[in-house]
């Protein structure tokens, strides 16, 4: 299959199975992009998510553009992004045309109460995997705890957390490397 078509179809599948916003996309990305297609590694997807959170636009769209670009250049970025929004376009057009009180339908309510439970478990599994790759030492553990608690208890924008964490990463790494090289000189 041509790579661009493959990108479009894979991201259409991911977009069609992502219920509840950008974060719920993670389990699908892990399955399709990392495990099956091997278009990106776990760390790269994590990097894209982080950048996607502090740049304009929708996280799911930003992540699709990133992975598409990495796989196939600019056309890849465009095809992956069109793929990820395609299911929404079709589904919402149908709903807008035919169903006026879609979210009130009993069968819809019940079905999605069930789906939400599954999304919880899928996100939990995805987070556990990512946690092992990203929280690798004491400074990263501290960053994780502070931002986790901070974003639950306060209204601080995720952008602030992301920028602060990037700065903290630079400072921590620079200091530890300085410490190491000085330690090396003394020895």
């Amino acid at each position: 299959m041509p790579k661009l078509l493959d990108l479009f179809l894979t991201f259409a599948r991911i977009g069609g199975l992502t219920f509840g916003g950008g974060y719920a996309m993670l389990p699908m990305l892990q399955k399709e992009v990392i495990e099956t297609k091997k278009w990106a590694t776990e760390e790269e997807v994590m990097n894209y998510y982080a950048v996607g959170q502090c740049t304009p636009g929708i996280i799911a769209v930003n992540t699709a553009t990133f992975i598409g670009y990495k796989t196939c250049g600019i056309p890849g970025g465009i095809f992956a992004t069109l793929g990820v929004v395609f299911p929404s376009l079709v589904i919402i057009s149908i709903i807008a045309a035919f169903i006026t009180n879609f979210a009130e339908l009993a069968v819809v309510k019940n079905a999605f109460a069930g789906i939400r439970v599954c999304v919880c478990v899928l996100i939990l599994n995805a987070v556990v995997k990512l946690f092992k790759k990203s929280v690798i030492d004491i400074p990263t553990a501290v960053l994780f705890i502070v931002i986790f608690i901070g974003s639950i208890l306060t209204d601080i924008s995720p952008i602030i957390f992301v920028i602060a964490a990037g700065a903290a990463g630079i400072i921590i790494q620079t200091l530890t490397q300085k410490g190491k090289s000085e330690g090396g000189k003394q020895a």
Binding site: Y23, N47, G169
Partner: peptide, 13 residues
């Protein structure tokens, strides 16, 4: 930068 961004991203998720 990414060394710091990755745990932040997992925390936000």
């Amino acid at each position: 930068t990414f060394y710091g961004l990755r745990p932040a991203s997992v925390a936000l998720i």
